[in-house]
């Protein structure tokens, strides 16, 4: 098996080819570990959980942003594997990229539960009541492991570095869709701008590469809808808070049901 790695020492980059034994079960991460441990101790790449939960091992494999630990060699069906650092991030060394901008954008959308009465987040004599259906309205977006693949795949990020990007926008929606949250207004200023939700062209590349089925493209469309809705629609308030157990009679389900959308037409960076 041949593995071609785009290496980088901070001042220059070059392709280096390694030959490694592969087995039926091996993942790309296994090959990289093998190379580092037996051939070249200087090869830099991140990894930790080895089970697709921690988001460390994002790289570009044969042109597609992927998790190294979740990509089996046998799936790739190629004799030579091409490995590059994630696109759209500054490279620090080899496959290690700078994620600072990524984590700052995540933070900029205020990704936490906001309550009108903040004291409600300091003591919890009882839980908020949430139905399973309400859980389902945001849990998919909460699955985000912050691997950054979606940003690497996004053609809009590549053109507009100020674009908040699919990961952070999906997280904004995750909290806005949460029946416990009352922070829509506080987040709106950040989202409702030309570098915010409106920048998205809906290429769908983010959802195509996302290893966790978060579907950021869908989240962004729902976010747009939410902004329109709350701007123009007066009447019964959408996203009313769920009150604490004692006060509440029956659980409310106020989340808009998303129409089924087709995201299968995502852009494959490989082609």
């Amino acid at each position: 098996m041949k593995v071609r790695v785009l290496r980088n020492d901070g001042s220059k980059q070059w392709w280096q080819e390694f030959s490694v034994e592969s087995s039926k079960r091996a993942t790309v991460l296994d090959l990289l570990l093998n190379i580092r441990e037996t051939q070249d101790h200087t090869l830099a790449f991140r990894h930790s959980c080895q089970m697709g939960s921690c988001g460390s091992c994002g790289i570009v494999i044969n042109g597609k942003p992927s998790l190294a630990c979740q990509t089996r060699i046998s799936e790739l069906k190629s004799e030579t594997i091409r490995i590059e650092p994630l696109y759209s991030y500054p490279v620090i060394k080899d496959l290690v990229v700078d994620l600072n901008d990524f984590v700052n954008k995540h933070r900029s959308v205020k990704p936490y539960i906001i309550r009108k009465n903040p004291q409600e987040l300091e003591e919890a004599p009882m839980e908020f009541r949430v139905t399973s259906a309400e859980n389902m309205s945001f849990i998919q977006y909460d699955y985000c492991i912050m691997c950054g693949l979606c940003v690497a795949a996004c053609p809009t990020v590549a053109l507009d570095p100020q674009f908040i990007g699919p990961q952070a926008l999906a997280q904004a929606y995750r909290y806005i869709a949460d029946p416990r949250d009352e922070g829509f207004k506080e987040r709106k200023a950040e989202l409702d701008t030309s570098h915010g939700v409106w920048r998205c062209h809906f290429a769908g590349a983010c959802s195509y590469v996302c290893p966790k089925g978060v579907d950021p493209a869908q989240a962004i469309q729902l976010l747009k809808r939410e902004i329109y809705k709350r701007m123009f629609v007066r009447g019964p308030k959408v996203g009313a808070p769920v009150s604490v157990l004692a006060k509440q009679e029956k659980p409310i389900s106020n989340q808009p049901k998303a129409p089924p959308l087709d995201f299968k037409s995502g852009v494959n960076q490989n082609e």
């Binding site: 839980e127 909460d142 909290y175």
Partner: peptide, 15 residues
């Protein structure tokens, strides 16, 4: 839970 953990729920919305 108040900080966002999506605990699995019972029918009545409790944990």
């Amino acid at each position: 839970e108040r900080w966002g953990v999506p605990w699995n729920r019972r029918e009545d919305g409790r944990i």
